[in-house]
Computed example of a mutant assay.
Amino acid sequence: MAVILRYVDNKSQVIERFMGVQYVIETTSSKLKESIDEFLKLHDLSYSNLRGQGYDGTSNMRALVALAKKNSDIGAFFTMTNSLVNVVGCSCKRRDALRDKQQENLMKAIENDCLETGQGLNQEISLKRAGDTRWNSHYDALISLITTFSSVVDMFDMIVEDCYNDSAELDDCFAEGNTELLICLARLSPNDSFVAFDKEKLVFLAQMYPKDFTDQDRSALQDQLDIYIHFVCSDNDFSQLRGINELAKKMVDKGLHRTFAYVYLLV
């Protein structure tokens, strides 16, 4: 049970203070009153100065959580805790890995006599989220994190390593594919009277786009490329072009985007 005091200070300002969490066996009114009595005595406070009380309700829990969130440190802490639970629990693979790592660490602790054993002890525990309407869910979230902390750290090391490996593999694949694409595209350049033209590279470029070029289309492209390069190299209108953008515009101006439709599709 969380205890919050609201009081009026010497400046007539209403102040709220989170005093602490009091353990309760039951949530009946009598048990709650006993716990409150103990808590007030512990802090040298008296019921005689108490003007009202409220407890055991969703609205009260929401007020408590809202109050805790006003403290930037507490709010940031529980936000980070929930983010941690989301990262670890977002996939079955990670949850299984956490459970396996927890069992492994548990066995090591038992073998080294670092952990008490017995019936009901060392049960499997999963990470829990802190809810907005139940303060005890924040307590449960902390207990689950403390209990599994070493395993969670190991899990994050695994996640970081996996992300690094995946990123490196993706970068390698992208770099290789991107470089090949740029090399092939350069073979379309009209600069210096199409000196960079390479029929095989352009056919290979078409193979990179299987949705746009079927096997039959690529066969037709090969035939078109022979006629195309002969035509543009013998036409003075193409001799001063710079860049693929100018080539595409000139082909449209002269209607060649229809005559050499497969070549234009590459452009």
Rank of each mutant, 00 (worst) to 15 (best):
K41C: 10
D157L: 03
Y228H: 01
I15Y: 11
S234H: 15
K128A: 03
I183V: 04
L188N: 02
D237H: 14
F156S: 00
D215T: 13
N60A: 08
R62Y: 15
Q102L: 08
N49R: 09
K250F: 11
K211P: 05
Y262P: 01
F156C: 10
D157G: 05
K69N: 10
G118K: 02
M251E: 06
F39L: 07
Y228I: 03
N71S: 11
D113S: 02
S150Q: 13
S150L: 05
R99E: 01
A66M: 15
C163S: 15
T81C: 05
Q222E: 11
E116N: 06
E176S: 14
D154G: 08
V24E: 01
F18G: 03
A76L: 15
F156G: 01
N236F: 06
A66F: 13
A68Y: 08
D223A: 02
I146L: 06
E180M: 13
S126W: 13
Q207G: 02
H138R: 04
R258M: 14
D226L: 09
E180Q: 08
H138T: 13
T58G: 07
E200C: 10
K128L: 06
G118R: 07
I183E: 12
I227M: 08
T148K: 00
T214N: 02
R258L: 03
D154C: 14
E26W: 08
A206V: 09
T117W: 08
H138N: 15
I146E: 09
F260D: 00
A63W: 11
N10W: 07
L32P: 00
Q222C: 08
L106P: 00
G243H: 05
I25G: 02
S59N: 15
A2M: 03
L121E: 14
N112L: 06
D44K: 07
C92I: 06
I227K: 04
A168S: 12
M61S: 06
K250R: 11
N191L: 04
A63I: 11
Q119V: 15
I183Y: 13
S193G: 03
G20P: 03
I25L: 06
R99H: 03
Y262W: 13
S150W: 09
L142H: 13
N191Q: 04
C233S: 00
R242D: 14
V232S: 03
A186K: 04
S46G: 11
G89E: 01
L182T: 07
V3H: 03
